[in-house]
Write a protein that binds this DNA or RNA. Structure first.
Lengths: 189, 189, 189, 189
DNA sequence: TATGAATGAGCCTTCATTCAT
DNA sequence: CATGAATGAAGGCTCATTCAT
C-alpha cells in the first residue's frame, strides 16, 4: 500500500501531464491562443485545474515546449563532437530544431508574434537554444564555413518563421526552405 | 443640375477609399485582426459602412493590398527585360516584394496563418504574384542559375514568413535573411 | 416626420434612461456590486449596451445618483435662507440627505466601502455635497450652535454609515439615529 | 503511553485555534469576505480543514468573534458597579465596544450587511451583547439620564455602522462620531 | 447609402465547495 | 482527521455583426 500522499501526488502529476498533452494537441490545431476551455475539455478536466497548474498562458506554453527545447539544446555539443565538420553539425542540429518546430504547429508563430506574456518562452529560448546554436555557428566561423554577420538569434528566428506551415506550405516545404537558407549561409568556395 | 447619380457614386467611391486608407494604417499598427471599430473610427465612418463595402474581413484585407499586389506583379516583366541576368531580375523583384511585406505589418503573418477567410487574398496571390514570380524563376532555370525544385509559390510563402518581424527581429533582419535564402537558391558554380 | 437621427438619439436616450432606472432598482435590491447581467436583464438590454453607455461600474453608479446629489446640493443655500436658524437649516438639509440615502439602499455602504472604482462618486460628493454641508456647518459655527471640531466630510460619512439599513434596522431607525447624532453635535447651552 | 485520544483531541484543538487566529488576521486585512484559501494558507492548513471545523463562513466568523463578544458582555455589569453614574458606565462600555469593532476591520460592515448566513453572529449579539447593553440603558433610564425611545439593539447597530472605517474616515473619526451620538442620547438638562 | 446603437456569443478568471486519499 | 487537487458556476469584459432609422 503506497502512502496516500504519494498516490495523490502521482495523480496530480498525471493530471498535469494530461493537461500538457491536451494543450500540445490543441496548440497544433488552433495555435497557442486557443481558448482555455478547449484545452480543459480535451484534457477532460475543469478550467480551474488548468489555472491551478499554469496560472498564466505563458506558463502553459512554456511547459509544453520546455522538454523539447531542453532536448534540442543538449543535442548541440553532441552533434558537434560526432560530426565530420561544424557545418555538418549545424545542419543536423537545425534539422532537429525544424523537426521540433514543424510538429508543434503554432510555436513558430508564437515565437514570432512578439506577444507579451510569451516572454517566458522567449527567455527560455534565449537562455538555452540560442547559446547552443551559437556554439555551432562559432565553430563554423572558426572553420571559415559560413559567411560572417549571421547571429544565432536571427538565424533561429528566421528558421522559426520558415516553419510556420499551413495549407499549401507543409512540413516538407518548410524543411526544404530551411535547407536552402542554410545553403545560403555557407561561404561560397 | 449635374447628374446626381454620378455625384452619389463619386461620394461612395470616396467613402470606400477612405475606409481602405484607414484600414491600411490600422493594419500596420495592429495587424489584420484589428477591431473593425478602430478602422471605422479612423476612417470617420460607421461600422455599417465597412460591412456594406466589405462584407468579410478578407474582402477588406484583399482590397487593401490589391493595388500593391498588382504593382508588384507588373514589376516582374519589366525587371526581367531591363536586368543583366534573370537572377538579378529575381533578386530585385524579391527586394520589391519584401519591401511590400515588411511595411505592411501583419500581412506576412496573415498570409502564413492559413486563416480561412483570407482565402481571397491567398487566391489573389496565387493568381497574380505567383505567376509573376514563376516567370522569373523559369527564366533563371533556363539559364541554369538556380537549383531545380523550387516553386514560385513555396518561395513566396517562405519569403512571406521571413518577413514576419517583431521585437529583436526587425526589417533589416528580414531583408538579410531573405537575401540569404536567395543566395541558397542559386546554383553553386 | 422627425429627422431620423433625432429619433435614433431619442431612442438611445430612452435606452440609457432605462438602464439607469434598472440599475437604480437593482442597486436597491442587491447593492452597487450587483452583476452587470442582472441590470441588463432588468433593463431588457444586452450587457454590451450597459458597457457602451457606462464603461465602468463607477460611471453607472455615479450616473444613477448624480441627479439626486445635485438636487441635494442645491437645497443647502435655499434652506439656509428660509430657516429660522442655521441649525434648523442643517437639520432640514440632513433630513433631505438621509431621505436620499435610505431610499437608495446600498449607496451608504458603497460610500463607506472605500472601493476603488467608486472614486468618481466619492469625488462627486467631495466636490458638491461636502461644500454644501460645510456652508451650513459654518453658519452654525458662526452662531455658536454646534461644538467645534466637526467637519462636513466626517459628518456626512457618519450619516452615510448610519443610513446603512437592513433587517431590524430600518429607515425609521436610521432617521432617529441621525437625529440623535445631530443632537449630539449641538453645543450644550 | 499517555492516552492517545487526548493527544489527538489536543492536536485538533490546536488546529482549530490556528484557524481562528489566521481568520482573525485575514478578516482584519481583507474583511469577512476574504477567500477561504487565504485563511487556510495563513493558518498553514488545507481548505478542507476549515470546512470540517467551520462548515459555513458564518460559523467561522462567529467563532472568531465569540470570545471578544463574551468579554465585552461581561464588562457591562462590572462597569455598572464601579462607575459613578449609569451613563458613565454606558460611555465606558461603548468605548470598549467601539474598540472591539474598529480593530476588527469588516465586522461592522458584516453586521450591517444583512447578509444571510451571518445570522449566527447576529443571533450571538442579540443573545448576549444586546442584553448587556440594555442593562446599562435601563440603568440610565432609571436615572433619567437619557432620552427615552432608544433601544439597545438600534443603538448598537448604529454604533456598528459608525465604526465602518475607510480612507478618509478612520478609527479616530469613528470614535468621535460615536461619542457625539452618545452625547445626543443624553437627556438635555 | 450611411449610421451607430444594440445584441449576445465567447473568452478569461476567480473562488466556494467537494471528496478521494 | 487533514489534505489539497479538482470542479464548475458565476461574473467581468470585448467585439463581430445586425438592423432600424
Amino acid at each position: 500500500m503506497p502512502e496516500p500522499v504519494g498516490v495523490r501526488r502521482a495523480q496530480a502529476q498525471r493530471t498535469r501531464d494530461g493537461v500538457l498533452a491536451a494543450a500540445s494537441a490543441v496548440f497544433v490545431e488552433q495555435g497557442v491562443q486557443a481558448p482555455v476551455r478547449d484545452i480543459a475539455e480535451r484534457a477532460g478536466v475543469g478550467v480551474g485545474t488548468i489555472y491551478r497548474n499554469f496560472p498564466t498562458r505563458a506558463d502553459l506554453v512554456t511547459a509544453v515546449y520546455r522538454h523539447q527545447i531542453d532536448t534540442c539544446t543538449a543535442l548541440a555539443p553532441q552533434l558537434l563532437a560526432e560530426s565530420a565538420s561544424p557545418f555538418t553539425a549545424l545542419t543536423r542540429w537545425v534539422d532537429a530544431f525544424v523537426e521540433f518546430l514543424v510538429t508543434k504547429h503554432g510555436l513558430g508563430a508564437a515565437l514570432g508574434s512578439g506577444d507579451p506574456g510569451l516572454e517566458n518562452l522567449h527567455a527560455l529560448m534565449l537562455d538555452t537554444l540560442v547559446p547552443a546554436c551559437a556554439t555551432l555557428l562559432d565553430a563554423c566561423a572558426a572553420d571559415d564555413e559560413i559567411r560572417p554577420g549571421i547571429t544565432a538569434y536571427t538565424l533561429m528566428r528566421a528558421i522559426g518563421n520558415l516553419c510556420i506551415t499551413g495549407p499549401d506550405y507543409d512540413q516538407a516545404d518548410a524543411q526544404r526552405m530551411v535547407a536552402t537558407l542554410l545553403a545560403g549561409c555557407r561561404r561560397p568556395a
